[in-house]
Simulated assay, not measured.
Amino acid sequence: MYDDNLDIVREVINIGIGEAADALSRLVNTRVIIKTPDICIMNAADVHDYIRKEMTSLSVYISQNFKEMIKGKTILFYTKECAVSLLNAICGQTMKTSSLTESGIATLNEIGNNIMVTCMSEISNQIDARIWFDLPEVTVEISENYFQNLLNDLKELDKAIVIKSEMRIKEKDIQGYLFILLSFEDFNLLIQGLWKKINTASS
């Protein structure tokens, strides 16, 4: 049953990330390649170090909280070079990699909102649940404070779920990572909602 649960969640998350990739593809007008997401169940206290290790080479992140039936956080990570290349691909501008202007950050905010809301809305639709989204936040140059504050909402929990997927725009050599962070409790709610929908459909 454990493997069945992971398989069904992975399938639904694939659908959500696939929709997010389609949204990004429409923005850049070229194909976006995604990898099968990694789903890691770990002690909540270990997520800080895991994220920090995974993201040591990246310096721009767009984060967004969601809540209601399930709650958690989505985060898009890019290097500064990839973030600028993404802006150039969408806006048709030529920027220096050393410059990420206020207007560029605002555009990244809109891009992240589009991608992350599309992803989580599709996942919530699979269990007929409605979720609400906070406004996304863009941060350039990840600091130690970021890692310290990343999981404030999960610090009281025993277990947490980290879902990681790579999104690559091959033609433009742009690579980013989409993370979904859930508590173990919310992960189980997602599983229960999926099984309920499956059983209802088959009855």
Rank of each mutant, 00 (worst) to 15 (best):
D7Y: 06
N113Q: 10
Q93A: 13
G112C: 10
R168F: 15
N88H: 06
S203D: 07
S99D: 15
A44P: 03
Q93G: 13
M116C: 15
S202D: 07
S103L: 14
L182D: 01
S25E: 04
I169G: 03
Q126L: 12
S202P: 02
K35S: 15
F66Y: 14
A160H: 02
L6C: 04
I169D: 00
A160N: 03
L194R: 05
L194K: 04
L182N: 00
I62S: 01
E122Q: 14
A44W: 07
I8T: 11
W132Y: 12
V60W: 05
V84I: 13
L151K: 06
T36C: 10
D3S: 14
D134G: 07
S63A: 11
N125L: 08
G193T: 05
E102I: 14
F66P: 02
K159M: 13
D173W: 06
L182W: 02
E144W: 02
K53Y: 13
V32R: 00
D158C: 11
D4R: 11
M55I: 07
S183I: 09
I198V: 12
N152S: 10
L189G: 06
K53L: 14
K80P: 02
F147N: 03
I161K: 00
N65A: 12
I15S: 01
D3M: 12
L154T: 05
S59I: 06
M55G: 08
E166H: 09
I111D: 01
N29F: 10
L194I: 13
E68M: 07
Y78V: 05
S165T: 09
A83K: 00
W195P: 00
I105E: 15
D22W: 05
F179K: 01
A89C: 11
D7M: 07
L194M: 06
M69N: 07
K73S: 11
N14S: 15
D7W: 02
E144P: 04
I191E: 07
N145Y: 08
P136V: 04
I17D: 01
L27R: 00
I198F: 10
V32S: 08
K196R: 08
I8N: 07
N109Y: 11
G18F: 03
C91W: 03
I180D: 01
M42N: 14
A83N: 03
I75M: 09
R10E: 13
M116P: 03
I39F: 05
I123S: 00
E68T: 12
E81H: 06
N88K: 10
V60R: 01
I174Y: 04
Q64C: 11
W132H: 06
I191Q: 08
T94I: 13
L87R: 01
T118W: 02
K159Y: 12
